[in-house]
Design a protein around this nucleic acid. Structure first.
Lengths: 108, 108
DNA sequence: TTTATATATTGCAATATTACGATAGATAAA
DNA sequence: TTTATCTATCGTAATATTGCAATATATAAA
């Protein structure tokens, strides 16, 4: 026990949950907000911006990268991290659709 | 270490992360989808619907309830669980706004 | 009151996450 | 080549999550 039973759920359910999970940490929300705020997006800036040690931030960036929310391109010594529109857009649309369905239903 | 350093982030960042975290498990996505699908929403049904034991589902329901994504009203022996529109709507709008900002920006 | 049914709680084992110091790797500048 | 800088990885401690059996609680029906 202890591990999520992903095999019992649909691919879509797992996929949405994976993105949500990646967004489920304030540091990673802060990273996304920072990437959104600045035009240039170098990791060194993020380390200065956030109250966490460099390895911790590197780890958070990796998680955002693994699930496809951001992508990084090597740019000299630094790495340019950017939000991947498609993944975030897909995620957003999923819940947008749910919200739309909700306004049409009344239960309790 | 091991605990999230919530005190270092803004209330908004923590709030969004909390909702995302609650959505970060396929069982909880499945529960929301089920609550959305059926009009009547009694927990017993969910136990039959999902491939998890009753205590596990009860636990997942509690998490969704704690962060405000669902609300439950006692209805005789059963409990009527429903999605809380406001919380999900707010969450959805947050990422909708980010998506909108993204389409106007080009970085890498 | 007894029995049945629905849900919650407790306790615990297995696993995952978070955070960071130390260190490694890779590129740029001197 | 040496040095500085940026980022990743390793190792590890602290904590959180997941899942379930056993059990408790609470209401309804008999």
């Amino acid at each position: 026990m202890g591990a999520t039973k992903t095999e019992h759920f649909t691919e879509q359910q797992n996929s949405i949950a994976t993105i949500a999970k990646a967004l489920g940490h304030p540091a990673r929300i802060a990273i996304l907000e920072y990437l959104l705020k600045v035009d240039s997006c170098i990791c060194g800036d993020i380390v200065n911006e956030l109250p966490l040690a460099q390895p911790t931030i590197s780890q958070h960036l990796k998680e955002l990268k693994t699930c496809g929310l951001i992508k990084g391109t090597i740019e000299g010594t630094a790495i340019c991290y950017c939000i991947d529109e498609k993944v975030l857009d897909n995620f957003q649309k999923h819940f947008s659709a749910i919200s739309a369905t909700l306004t049409n239903k009344k239960c309790c």
